[in-house]
Design a binder for these strands. Structure first.
Lengths: 375, 375
DNA sequence: ACGATCCGTTAAACTGTTTAAGCAGTTAAC
DNA sequence: GTTAACTGCTTAAACAGTTTAACGGATCGT
């Protein structure tokens, strides 16, 4: 099976030259199975007007008289005519399609973090009359410059980049070529790219406030990739607040959890080995928090009895894990929706530079408690 | 802000008649910011051949001589020409775009179940040279027959439906109109639609086997919507196995968890109120299992000490919850990938009817144990 | 009565491809 | 000796719309 499957795959790949079935150029008869496609020309004929008139009727051009409007619309309904958007886009220069570029992580599509962003983007795109095309930024994809091809070959009018960071040099390609692109929930202070982000700094402030107020002094940070600006923001706030409070926070108190459950678990091991007396874990996202929490229990610590854990993102499931996770709520849906609005504005040429920061708030649940009585 | 935001939204909605900026018909000069777009005509001129020749070069038509090949390709590279796929599709009748229709659930996009399917679909689509367009089957969407419009207006060549069930009468629209559609991980025995599913029956058999072998006798089923055929399959297997074992399994032992964490929690409450002696919970998906597990702990039962819990789907996070969840692994990624292959085959007209069932297997983790010593 | 304005409509040009049909000469098969 | 199938390429007609200059007729002011 693996072999025959590979064969089939190969055979199916869209070769540039794919005859498919016989097609011929015999006008458009009744298509295989589909209802006979009716074009604007036929509508025009039946309504005894020109195609230009039909086009203008469809576009509510005020130069068309009420009478003609109605006459043409009646024929349109009667014939069940639907304008072909390929022809429309070819002519009008707008595709009304936006691409969402996801990072090439194995579970990017099933990651609630990206899912919420995507959900906001899609909902708003739909309201604005745009379609969403999904792409994954795999190495091959970028090497073959498919990200540029999307624009150059007129697949899309604009693009969202999710999960990008400083290592992704290609984000500059878009602005260099003048293609509308918007970074969703990350940003590049030095690059002057459009973005919409949640306010990571204020979120981190709230986490530190609550942990310190609960009396914690041994607070460790499990952070995501430091090549993400938002992750650096969190680190900065953590460090500043710890220093303000006169607490120890050298690099031995932080570990990279690569934004995954596994990474969070591994990071927890590092930290607990270095600092067995750790009393609170601040994780840069919920997945790492979950991994850390799991590992804590694995190593015989109770949460929050022995160690408090705080996450970041507030993905939905975190209300249902045991114990439910205290976390910073990021308005990811709203970030996505707003990003979509702004990108569309940009495409329409109505906006110069876009940068927005949406408020966050802490959600207190059961994974945090007052520091155990070790005074 | 809510008001001004609504205004802006309204203003941005793509009206049929959107002048945008001035556009005019002045050929294609240097586009705003973008590199000057070069068309096939220009390539042909520079290479002193006809556009047809250029087209044939691009499509590797064997009738083109090696010399012309090279000459034309050189010009193509020099000018940085990229074929306009709107024109290609308009002419060739293939869009090479597939739509994925997701159910209109609030968290559909962030649901790892759909995410895995989507991931498989997208990966394979990419390999096969196809793009993926995302749609959400909201009531409005269906009422306005946008699902048909996708085909009629030539947005896509084919469509995947995820999360559909018997109540979704519109699934018939596609086959009625002869549009290629494929149901992913659900099926309609009486409808003769194409589908690819995981083998729910065999998965359920494995769950029942392990629970019975562990000595459980009070086994409850928290099932998803009974309007899904796969959910009915699970129910049937549950009932059959319980009866085989001479155990009680009337409807008081099952509850509808609507496939959500909240639903799972609510269903658990029903069951535990009716049967305080329940010793094992079989949930129709992992989310319900998680909700049930959370609620069990909430109500003072230990998992698996007092009650064992088994899920279904094997979404990634379930390895990291406490306790980690025993569950049936569905090859969702593979289901998606295979679905994509078959849909593409269908579009190419190479296949008549498609129906495939992929194997599942049980993953034993920490949420199940031998029945507590109450003999 | 004459030119200007306005209105609704049309023809033609344009978007950028693919492909059937042809051109005229060469070779192979029947 | 005719037919057929090459050769490598061109021409022109599709594909299905949008846009704009122009046009004829009615209205209007002078």
């Amino acid at each position: 099976m693996p072999d025959s499957q590979a064969d089939m795959l190969n055979e199916l790949v869209a070769k540039p030259d794919t005859p498919g079935q016989v097609r011929g150029r015999q006008g458009n008869g009744s298509r295989a199975g589909g209802a006979r496609r009716v074009s604007m020309r036929e509508v025009a004929q039946q309504a005894s007007v020109s195609v230009a008139t039909v086009s203008m009727v469809l576009n509510d051009n005020p130069r068309i008289s009420k009478a003609t409007q109605i006459k043409v619309r009646r024929i349109i309904d009667k014939l069940g005519y639907r304008p072909n958007r390929l022809a429309q886009s070819l002519s009008s220069q707008y595709t009304r399609v936006l691409a969402v570029l996801l990072p090439p992580l194995r579970h990017a599509f099933s990651d609630p973090y990206f899912g919420e962003l995507l959900s906001g983007i899609c909902d708003r795109a739909d309201k604005l009359g745009h379609k969403i095309m999904l792409e994954s930024a795999k190495p091959d994809f970028l090497r073959e410059r498919k990200h540029m091809e999307l624009f150059e070959r007129r697949f899309v009018d604009g693009m969202f980049c999710l999960g990008v960071n400083d290592r992704h040099h290609w984000v500059r390609d878009f602005s260099d070529a003048g293609f509308p692109m918007l970074c969703v929930n990350n940003y590049f202070p030095e690059l002057n790219l459009d973005y919409v982000v949640a306010d990571y700094r204020s979120g981190a402030e709230q986490v530190m406030n609550v942990l310190l107020q609960l009396g914690h002094k041994q607070i460790a940070l499990i952070n995501g990739a430091p090549e993400a600006q938002t992750a650096r923001d969190v680190l900065e706030v953590y460090t500043a607040r710890m220093q303000d409070a006169g607490l120890e926070c050298d690099t031995s108190w932080t570990a990279d959890g690569r934004f995954t459950e596994e990474g969070g678990a591994a990071a927890l091991n590092e930290i607990i080995d270095r600092h067995p007396d750790v009393s609170a874990i601040f994780a840069g996202n919920d997945k790492m928090a979950l991994g850390a929490m799991h590992q804590l229990v694995e190593r015989g610590r109770r949460v929050p009895g022995d160690v408090s854990v705080v996450g970041f993102d507030d993905i939905q499931q975190m209300a249902f894990v045991n114990p439910s996770l205290t976390t910073v709520h990021l308005p990811l849906y709203e970030v996505g929706a707003r990003a979509c609005e702004l990108l569309v504005q940009r495409i329409r040429g109505k906006t110069e530079n876009v940068a927005e920061r949406l408020a966050t708030h802490l959600v207190l649940r059961d994974s945090t408690s007052i520091v155990p009585g070790r005074r």
